[in-house]
Design a protein around this nucleic acid. Structure first.
Lengths: 201, 201
DNA sequence: CCTGAATGAACGAGCGTTCGTTCGTATAGT
DNA sequence: ACTATACGAACGAACGCTCGTTCATTCAGG
């Protein structure tokens, strides 16, 4: 193994170890010594890659963020390939995949919220409406009930699913709705599509 | 002021100061000295009221939890006084009130999740379905679309609203849907009631 | 040889917790 | 009513430890 290859390998191991520890015990609950131990590098070596512990945390967030906003992710693909609101079940399944694939990132944003007062993730929710509007503009929509705001409805659906799966990950409760994930996706889709009340006669 | 009255007053001030600090910088980011300073008591006095810093945190959680599960709260009252699913807007407004009134508690549960691996709040989501089923059983429901699970639909509605308002509190983003809270409540209610798609002809 | 990645002892600050002490107040004895 | 006594709430210096960070030194690769 070449010298520079080992260097980047060390950097990756530091990031991975720090991530696992931050997720389990938070930022201030994790010491640099723990990180070094878990990564299998010396204490001082951390500072050859990151200027401070906080810088290490921020780098972690940035790497995930880049991944997350890359368009090769299940939800973006689903939204691009199918049409709202015919794709409600597909959005549900894609949301589950996204939460599973990015659960570490999502949990890290909660670490930022709790320990840094959300200092590093400000732009995550900025212009959310514009981003969803752009998706709809690019793909068009199927027929909507009159008076229903399309972008609002899309955000409602996506974040309804997101939050359900995030709850399971965050609070480590399985089946907090008392049914299988697949059935929750179906229930949500049914309600989002036609509502809870029966059709008027 | 009597001796014991001053004692309990000190205890309250410690709890309040600790709460404010935990919310801003987390548990491990807050030192006992900061708490004592903010509360206006001596460092050692904290330990006349709480055996450890963690005990102080847990006491805080327990006091809020008792409050939260007391039935004199807006959402419980709304669910008892109106009938599902005719009360969708009322549930939305009550959810907003609950999140506002208990935002400190809710944020503290996130502190527990991030820094204690959700150790102290296990039972919060346990038997959630049973609790919501009991509400429906006590009050009955209006007519529902066939195939829609009543308890599931109620949880979906309540937690849809909850999560919307929690997002605003947690991530300190206002109007992340790009509309006023009241309009979000209306949009959600409209969709929950009759769905996103138009009626079939 | 150099270069620079890697090391880990060392540093000073700050941590949670303890405990000997003080002192205002409630209680008991006269 | 007054004093003597006991109580326990409050204090804050001190303790042992761990923290994030630094840096002189080592040593393998180019």
């Amino acid at each position: 193994m070449t010298k520079t290859a080992r260097r980047t390998d060390n950097r990756d191991r530091i990031l991975k170890a720090a991530c696992a520890l931050f997720l389990k015990q938070g930022f201030n609950g994790t010491s640099t010594r723990e990180i070094a131990d878990k990564a299998g590098v010396s204490l001082g070596n951390i500072y050859n890659h990151f200027s401070t512990k906080e810088d290490l945390f921020v780098s972690l967030l940035k790497e995930y963020e880049a991944d997350y906003f890359n368009h090769d992710q299940p939800l973006a693909r689903t939204l691009a390939m199918t049409r709202f609101p015919e794709n409600l079940e597909a959005i549900g399944e894609a949301s589950k995949e996204v939460v599973e694939r990015f659960s570490d990132y999502i949990l890290l944003t909660y670490v930022d919220v709790v320990e840094f007062d959300a200092k590093h993730i400000g732009k995550l929710f900025q212009n959310m409406r514009e981003r969803y509007s752009a998706v709809l503009k690019a793909n068009g929509t199927g027929p909507l009930r009159e008076g229903v705001d399309p972008a609002g409805a899309l955000m409602m659906v996506v974040w309804g699913y997101f939050n359900y799966f995030i709850m399971e990950k965050l609070f480590k409760v399985q089946n907090h709705y008392g049914m299988k994930d697949a059935d929750v996706v179906k229930l949500f889709a049914r309600v989002y599509r036609r509502g809870i009340e029966p059709d008027k006669k």
